[in-house]
Design a protein around this nucleic acid. Structure first.
Lengths: 209, 209
DNA sequence: ACCGAACCGTAACGTACGGTACGGTCAGTG
DNA sequence: CACTGACCGTACCGTACGTTACGGTTCGGT
């Protein structure tokens, strides 16, 4: 994957976000390269889209969280940061455009774009969040039987129906300024559900405000 | 909307679910009608899709819930039934196919299919659920400031990321047998967050099992 | 200076599909 | 029975787009 090829994929991403028709001609024009080169590098249209999805996924690898001295405050802080980070990702125009493409392709089983997005989006964040949850349980500040259930509950509290609404074109699904607030609310609610007595979760009134 | 026209729209739905290419020729073949008739009845391809979405929405109008003698048990029962009903809808092949079509069209602003699906799906269930939540608050068994926030929290707890995963082609996002259990879990969690002392919500251990 | 590889721009090809036109069939109506 | 209108099946048209082919240019290696 040379520098030039990455520039081409960035041009594809830009076209996706723009909402323009994603034709090979449009990509070649936007990336200032020839269609022949596109086919030589990526095989066919599907290969180009797949490479674009992988390229975008490789750019989202966010930092990990240190697991030392995990008290209730540090856990809350880490969870809230996770939530805000994830909300920012799924609300970004790039993510919305990419998921729309993947979903369109999932309809006709012509490729596994959906699987790739799934693996690099949902499942990847699970692999990063679950260790944090389990560390919280070992530290005695979280209580749950099934890590997967707890993880998906957190995902549900954070994301709610925001992503589907955005995919359907609802511009008001979430505002930029709401992300931090929503992340904090979801974290409080999660700790109310899964925190132990040592968690010192806020009372319900603040969780529902 | 004659009987025959509804049969055509049902054929469109069947094609959508099947995952076949949704061409006008395919629709005419599946519905045993001529393309000319399709254009006379629905104007163009977009009109056909719009009519299909509306037709499907008109079939999902589920029964309302009686609001008399709303004690904690009745509220829990109503919420769980709501949750199970909604999960069944979003997990149905028809809903998945329809949302995929709408999302594909939302990408290129050529029509407002996404808006229609949004209005008949998410917003419609909100109009049916919010009165129940507010009745619970008036009865003193729920406590929240903002109805919209409480509603969306419930939606998040019930649906989690199931719908997006299904849209992306994840067949294991939810199993048929899990719907009742997930609905009960989400209801318990919601009552833990928003119930009052009179709600008698189950302890955390059962909510997280 | 020369060669070949890589690449650009553009033209061309084949196909799929939205949309239209037309002939044929059948039901209802005078 | 003739007429009309709705509809079916099919052929057809124009265009968009994926894919391929080709001539021209740049550039590193010898």
């Amino acid at each position: 994957m040379t520098e030039r090829q990455q520039a081409v994929l960035d041009a594809v991403l830009a076209l996706m976000v723009e909402g323009d028709a994603l034709t090979m001609s449009a990509v070649a024009r936007a990336a200032s390269c020839s269609k022949e080169t596109l086919y030589k590098w990526f095989g066919d249209r599907d290969g180009l889209l797949t490479a674009t999805v992988r390229w975008q996924a490789s750019k989202v690898r966010a930092g990990n969280f240190d697991r030392q001295h995990l008290d209730a405050g540090a856990l809350r802080e880490s969870l809230a940061r996770f939530a805000a980070n994830w909300l920012g990702v799924i609300a970004s125009p790039t993510s919305v455009a990419l998921n729309r493409i993947a979903i369109s392709h999932a309809a006709s089983q012509e490729s596994n774009l959906g699987t790739i997005v799934l693996a690099n989006g949902r499942l990847a964040i699970g692999e990063r969040l679950k260790p944090l949850l389990e560390a919280g349980r070992e530290a005695g500040i979280l209580a749950f039987d099934d890590t997967e259930t707890a993880f998906r509950t957190f995902i549900g509290l954070v994301g709610r129906d925001v992503q589907v609404r955005l995919l359907l074109g609802d511009r008001q699904a979430i505002a930029a300024g709401e992300i931090e607030r929503d992340a904090a609310r979801a974290t409080d609610q999660f700790l109310t559900l899964y925190g132990t007595d040592e968690t010192a979760a806020p009372s319900l009134s603040s969780a529902s405000s």
